[in-house]
Design a protein around this nucleic acid. Structure first.
Lengths: 229, 229
DNA sequence: GTCGTTACGCTAACGCCGATACGTTACTGG
DNA sequence: CCAGTAACGTATCGGCGTTAGCGTAACGAC
């Protein structure tokens, strides 16, 4: 179906051309389509258990059916490809957290749900979590010009913005002590990141069951952050 | 000072041997000496800012003055070399924590000091921390046969044993609630690891000042883990 | 139509990497 | 003195990321 234009030499199979399948070329503005295909293939390789080392330029291009240098038409280098793969996965992070927090009346309970959902999401996408949150932060655009996490810059940053909002509401409702809300949000973020990255990174450490860990950490934090009354 | 034994052919420079300086060979049992030299060179490369990618077999062997395959006489592969470098750095972790905890009367205060010292040590050896605690735990021998962290297996594990002991003493003194001490120790470990790895890994995130973070996290945890009274 | 222009993909090649197979040297114990 | 072996070098392999440069198909303008 690909060789429709050249009926002249198709009969001559004496050359036994093993025929490098020679991908059908894209139309003028459709380069982005191949870009998506590349991201899909890289995503598959990354999460098929091979880890980042399985995502080689040649493996990805081979899976797509393209030669290796072609990838550089769509990504400046391998790092950017990996980053884009992970960023695409994490575009759903904020939505996942919002879904978990939706319809919860008590802002303290909402914080707990958010925390559990965060860990859940991280463990569901361990390779992406490792690359984005545990390795060289490739100058990930966390902060806006004001020095605060910027919603527009990164999906993870907008999730942090919603966490911060949750903290402020919890303080207004009197279920959290009046520490600097930004610091409180960072404490929660760092601690939940600790559980997530610990389970992902130190997989041979004899951790207690995950639910036990999460409940205990969240319980301790929420009690410790509650008003003194 | 190296060529003392071969006075016979040193005069014959007609062969113009650009003389690959040809390292003086080790005596029979002195292979370990070169092993130490290799570890030193790899350590220097790793912490000179280049990161793990700067620790190539050729760079290390070149720095030592040896050919590349020689390294495989002393390490099975590059991964083991990197692991040994980091493990050597972390051999001092337990001693550092014990020094910080020495002479502190209140076991709760002791826990805080231990926590601060842990973060301090991690941030002082970021590359080693990243490799050992934040990347593929290369089957790091955390646990003994009983499923608990084993002192003999790993320096980090013995540090955890001391943390656990500290928790037990704090509970006995009545300054910590009577949760499962193993779970409490894991909660503290994971949370402190969270702060450490967050600062190391997400270096572009606008974290509050480190002292603020550490004090706030430790404060929240200690209050949350205190008895209900 | 045809003619630049541009997007798209390929071929060839460079330099570096980790790793292996095997030869060579120098010490040591019998 | 000689076999054995630890210590190290030579030559080489296949794979990696990346670049330079070339064909070619699709489009807009005339």
């Amino acid at each position: 179906m690909t060789a429709d234009a050249s009926a002249e030499s198709t009969t001559a199979e004496s050359t036994a051309a093993p025929s490098p399948p020679r991908r059908t070329r894209r139309r003028r503005g459709e380069g982005v389509l191949l870009r998506e295909e590349i991201l899909d293939a890289a995503d598959r390789l990354l999460f098929a258990g091979g880890g980042p080392s399985a995502v080689t330029i040649r493996a990805v291009s081979g899976a797509v059916g393209v030669t290796a240098p072609t990838l550089y038409r769509h990504f400046t280098d391998r790092d950017e490809l990996l980053y884009q793969v992970c960023a695409r996965r994490f575009a759903a992070l904020d939505a996942h957290l919002e879904a978990a927090a939706a319809g919860v009346a008590d802002p303290a309970d909402e914080l707990c749900r958010r925390g559990k959902a965060y860990i859940e999401f991280g463990l569901a996408n361990p390779e992406a979590y490792k690359l984005l949150f545990m390795e060289d932060d490739h100058g990930l655009p966390w902060e806006g010009s004001d020095g605060w996490p910027d919603d527009k810059a990164d999906p993870g940053a907008s999730a942090f913005g919603h966490l911060l909002d949750n903290v402020v509401r919890a303080q207004a409702a009197g279920v959290l002590r009046d520490d600097d809300p930004y610091v409180v949000a960072c404490t929660l973020f760092a601690s939940l990141h600790g559980v997530t990255s610990a389970v992902i990174g130190m997989e041979h450490f004899p951790w207690p069951p995950l639910d036990t860990m999460v409940d205990h950490v969240l319980g301790a934090l929420m009690r410790g952050l509650a008003p003194a009354d």
